[in-house]
């Protein structure tokens, strides 16, 4: 349980970080030309000065910046993210509606990138400088350089338009009314391309790091000892090398959780997925500042919780930590 205490302390220390983020962003958004009311009025096709002022008062936008900031932080403490003027409902509800798609996308992309990256990294390291290694390493470099949205578009061209194997966008078949297992399969079909698209760059990174760290660990003394004891090659790799070589890759997952969320903004808009990323994009365009701040808050929470889990996994992999 000391592990939990340690991870908990890390969790506590992320509170000031969160506060810095929120204050910084709030001040940043104050610099933005135009506010929610301007956007609303523009959407309604204009309005007179009196109505604009009334709206401002209604949304509390007439108060000084410091007061608005104080109010905002106080509401956040109560887990109230405010009210989205554009969507006409509380921000929490808007975000909760969009969260599952993003979580599903991130989860599947992360697991795919993690397991495929590790497998490819191991293969490359076992056959270092032979053709499988050259092939895998080259693929890794190319994947790393591929813009994800472009890969997604090309995937649509090949698999959705030419071959018509997969749907080109959306989250599930609208109006099909599937339930239970059928619905799961339906959604899975829609998620194949987005998952691959989002996972691509992370796959490249993981396989590179995995290969390097396998090579590093393979030269260490305890591996030689294990081999000298007559441990079978398979067991050496799985029980001795793998466990140690995994550490840097696991670290990276925590570090890149934020990058992955950022990547989902682009991927979700390519595939028209109703997720958090597309919501962020829409609220930037619509100047829905409450929603935008809410998304940032939720994604910071997400990143922090991923890091919390990484800490726990880390402690399991390396008993010396705790």
């Amino acid at each position: 349980m000391r592990v939990l205490a340690l991870a908990g302390r890390r969790l506590l220390s992320s509170i000031p970080t969160l506060l810095i983020i929120l204050v910084g962003l709030f001040l940043l958004l104050q610099l933005a030309p135009g506010d929610t009311v301007d956007a609303l009025v523009a959407q309604m096709g204009g309005g007179d000065q009196k109505m604009v002022e009334e709206l401002r008062r209604f949304y509390g936008l007439d108060a000084p910046v410091a007061v608005q900031l104080g109010r905002y932080i106080w509401r956040l403490v109560q887990l109230d993210l405010g009210y989205s003027a554009i969507y006409g409902k509380p921000v929490v509800n808007v975000i909760l509606e969009r969260l599952p798609a993003t979580l599903l996308l991130m989860g599947s992309a992360l697991s795919f990138a993690f397991f495929a990256g590790i497998a490819l990294g191991i293969i490359a390291a076992r056959r270092v400088n032979k053709w499988p290694d050259t092939l895998i390493s080259t693929l890794g470099l190319v994947f790393y350089a591929t813009p994800s949205f472009w890969f997604g578009l090309m995937g649509i061209v090949v698999f959705a338009i030419r071959l018509a194997w997969l749907p080109s966008g959306g989250f599930e078949t609208v109006g099909a009314g599937y339930t239970g297992l059928m619905r799961v399969l339906d959604i899975a079909r829609y998620l194949v391309l987005p998952t691959l698209t989002l996972a691509l760059i992370f796959l490249a990174i993981y396989l590179r790091i995995m290969r390097a760290s396998m090579l590093e660990v393979l030269t260490l003394d305890f591996v030689r000892t294990a081999r000298a004891k007559g441990v079978a090659e398979q067991a050496v790799i799985v029980r001795h090398v793998l466990r140690n070589a995994l550490l840097p890759v696991v670290t990276l997952i925590g570090l890149q959780a934020g990058t992955m969320l950022g990547g989902s903004v682009v991927v979700e808009s390519v595939f028209a997925l109703p997720g958090l990323g597309r919501l962020a994009y829409e609220s930037v365009v619509q100047r829905d500042l409450n929603t935008l701040l809410g998304i940032v808050f939720v994604s910071a929470l997400l990143v922090i919780s991923v890091n919390f889990m990484v800490d726990l996994i880390y402690a399991r992999l390396d008993p010396r930590i705790s």
């Binding site: 970080t17 933005a32 934020g258 969320l261 962020a280 930037v284 100047r287 935008l292 922090i304």
Partner: peptide
């Protein structure tokens, strides 16, 4: 390092979207 951490916790593309929206 706290500030660096804050920037790291924030998805960089989201921050980029915001900066561009503002400026």
């Amino acid at each position: 390092m706290r500030i660096t951490e804050a920037f790291q916790t924030l998805p960089n593309f989201l921050l980029l979207l915001m900066l561009v929206a503002v400026f």
